[in-house]
Design a protein around this nucleic acid. Structure first.
Lengths: 187, 187
DNA sequence: GTCTATACGCTGATAGAC
DNA sequence: GTCTATCAGCGTATAGAC
């Protein structure tokens, strides 16, 4: 893995764990094992690293969803799998929250121009979820249902981070799965 | 209003709009109209200001809910009013997110010892909501329902902050109100 | 491509005059 | 209680040797 790629990888992780603004060049450099000076050969400003991290997240998200689409599971199972991310990533969410929601909010508070790009990750999930509901026959309100599922994940992630209560997460996932079953019964 | 109270007020607002760590002493001092030096007469460290802000938020939250309880509205109307906060505070939420969820997450990422106190604001809402559902006759699962309503507000706030789509917020509030009607029908 | 050395503003925080 | 003056440390960023 090239140095630039290592920097983006380390920054991606640190931006998630500590936040964008709090993460210093020194911390990223130390994480990668290079000097602070060498840093500026690859990225001229901190905003450039942020942009690279956002692009990497967009790419990895699209890749993950494409892999899911290629699998044998149907759209209902795929949406269930998406909702269960709050269980799969439970430890990280308890410690740091959802990487998408917390970054977009931090950039909103900073008034950062890259905020819109960060929201793009939400848009990738939204579009993908909409496609799943369309496959399930809910073409008229597929986007509404997609937004509802996104709302669910963000609400659970925020409260999982606050309360760190695994029973709560399990119950809410069960509630969403019941809701999902009702939705496809309607279609 | 005393100087100390003004400091807490300004810090409360700035912590919400800019985040805790990003808000500097200089910014708070400027907002209040005092010098940076005078600051340390009232608060010895930044963490002390944070604690004062959290205590102020706890007090104002309790006060607001007590006022609601004293009103003529029943528990169902009160819960609806709570859910509609995402519309009442729509502008601020679009710009800065939910003050409770974003502070608890920032403190989680910082590993800050006051995180638990910040979560206390969530606990105040949770306890109050639980009481409303108990009044509605859902004693067995009042806490689950309370957590669901909290999950709703946090999810909507995060996506309202990301997408800034007022139709989405309106639709989700309508969806919750429908859900609430179903819940009291069960009881 | 990677390093060391360095500039310089802003941070939280302190000391002491008034 | 409020002020000015000042501190040490860290932040991003640059210059230039290797």
């Amino acid at each position: 893995m090239g140095t630039r790629e290592q920097i983006v990888d380390a920054a991606n992780r640190l931006f998630y764990e500590q936040g964008f603004e709090r993460t210093s060049f020194a911390a990223i450099a130390e994480s990668v094992g290079i000097s602070r000076g060498n840093f500026y050969y690859h990225f001229k400003t901190k905003d450039e690293i942020l942009e690279a991290v956002i692009q990497a997240r967009l790419a990895s998200t699209r890749e993950m969803l494409a892999t899911w689409d290629e699998g044998s599971a149907g759209p209902l199972e795929r949406v269930r799998r998406f909702a269960e991310i709050v269980i799969t990533n439970q430890g990280d969410i308890e410690n740091y929250g959802c990487p998408v929601g917390t970054l977009t909010n931090e950039l909103a508070k900073l008034g950062h121009p890259s905020r819109a790009h960060a929201v793009g990750v939400f848009e990738v999930f939204r579009t993908w979820l909409r496609g799943q509901f369309e496959e399930l026959g809910r073409t008229a309100d597929a986007d509404d249902l997609a937004m509802y599922v996104l709302t669910f994940t963000q609400g659970v992630a925020t409260l999982s981070n606050a309360f760190r209560d695994r029973d709560f997460v399990r119950r809410e996932v069960a509630r969403l799965n019941t809701w999902l079953t009702e939705q496809i019964a309607i279609a």
